[in-house]
Design a protein around this nucleic acid. Structure first.
Length: 158
DNA sequence: GCCAACGTTGGC
DNA sequence: GCCAACGTTGGC
């Protein structure tokens, strides 16, 4: 578990975008509102400080990985679950027994060339990506080989 | 806007 | 604990 280092975080840009993250103080914000148990488990148990994130925009004309972010704070209780006014309220979640978790992430850099979903589908080495088989999962592990290849496709050269 | 896939809920 | 109904997601 501690040696997983790469993730894909999915978001609808109309809700929260990569540019929104860039404009937060320090390019940093909490990743709240995840209400799926498998994604919650990743946030609570596996996502660690320093892990690298592919930032994916969904539910748009051309869904794509558009940038890189990193984890700056590991999982802690998602307090938006306790805000009755908020969109992500869950009356079953309490301070003593939180159900939902979030992490803090920081903007790192955009990909010089976004890598679209359509393009990902054409690359045989990426056929095993979680994104292609379980597209609805909002927090997904990414293998190191996949990470390197996607960055290369995105025009990032070391 | 449609619809398929999938996660959640709730009756039994 | 099964499974049908229902709600949500997200590509197209």
């Amino acid at each position: 578990m501690p040696d997983r280092r790469y993730w894909l975080f999915k978001t609808e840009p109309s809700c929260f975008s990569f540019i929104d993250l860039q404009h937060r103080p320090g390019g940093t914000d909490h990743w709240d509102g995840v209400r799926n148990y498998q994604a919650r488990n990743y946030l609570r148990d596996e996502v660690q400080v320093g892990d690298q994130i592919l930032f994916y925009h969904s539910n748009i004309a051309e869904p794509a990985i558009i940038g890189i972010a990193e984890v700056v704070k590991a999982g802690y209780p998602d307090w938006t679950a306790r805000d009755p006014q908020g969109e992500h309220f869950d009356p079953n979640s309490t301070v003593a027994k939180p159900i939902w978790f979030m992490v803090d992430v920081r903007y790192v850099r955009p990909l010089p060339r976004p890598v679209t979903l359509a393009e990902l589908k054409t690359v045989p080495a990426l056929a095993g990506m979680v994104l292609l088989s379980r597209s609805r999962l909002s927090i997904q592990p990414v293998r190191a080989e996949e990470w390197r290849l996607i960055l290369r496709l995105g025009g990032v050269h070391k």
